[in-house]
């Protein structure tokens, strides 16, 4: 019962926040609304018993990525609403209409609704997989395919750090 109430509250909050992000003209408010969405999604991860991912979602998305966004918005001083004028055109209307059509097509196709559970699936073993221990055991298990991508990710992050410095610095 608690799960049902929590799901609906979080779902409605996240959808409202994401729509507010698109609708509002002020980039700082957009960023705030997106932080709200991220927090709701993190709480939904806890409902899905993925505690580690939930904590990482808050640390990485809400704590680091969005602060970087806010930092850049404030650095470029685009806080005033008139800084980026939207051209009056039909584009938003058409885009919204196409988006709604896309959503309806997605829902009508039935691939989201009619999920079948395969014969051997055991959702009950999922519970301990979401903890730090479960993630660690599976991520660093040499018998599984995750170890190499994990190491490759570290190189990706290093390259990104160097790239960001070169992009943003005036004289290297």
């Amino acid at each position: 019962m608690v799960t049902v109430i929590a799901f609906w509250v979080l779902a409605i909050l996240s959808v409202v926040a994401s729509i507010a992000m698109v609708v509002t003209k002020n980039p700082v408010r957009s960023a705030l609304a997106l932080v709200g969405t991220f927090l709701c999604v993190a709480a939904l991860y806890i409902l899905l018993s993925a505690q580690f991912i939930a904590a990482v979602q808050v640390i990485v998305y809400a704590g680091a990525i969005m602060v970087l966004f806010l930092f850049v918005i404030m650095l470029l001083n685009l806080g005033s609403p008139g800084a980026l004028r939207e051209r009056g055109s039909l584009q938003p209307v058409i885009a919204t209409g196409m988006g709604i059509c896309f959503l309806i097509a997605l829902l009508l196709s039935g691939s989201l609704i009619k999920l079948r559970l395969p014969a051997g699936a055991r959702p009950e073993v999922y519970e301990p997989l979401g903890t730090v221990r479960g993630i660690g055991i599976n991520l660093f298990d040499p018998k599984q395919p995750w170890l190499f991508p994990f190491e490759a990710t570290s190189i990706l992050l290093l390259v990104a750090v160097v790239g960001a410095i070169i992009m943003a610095k005036r004289k290297v």
């Binding site: 990485v60 966004f69 959702p123």
Partner: peptide, 28 residues
């Protein structure tokens, strides 16, 4: 969770790392 597998969470970990890299370069 539907399939009782850890794969979903693993993909999310990598997606998070890639998103962080993408944002730092993009904002640069």
């Amino acid at each position: 969770r539907h399939f009782g597998q850890v794969n979903g969470q693993m993909y999310v970990i990598f997606a998070l790392a890639v998103a962080a890299a993408e944002v730092s370069v993009g904002l640069g």
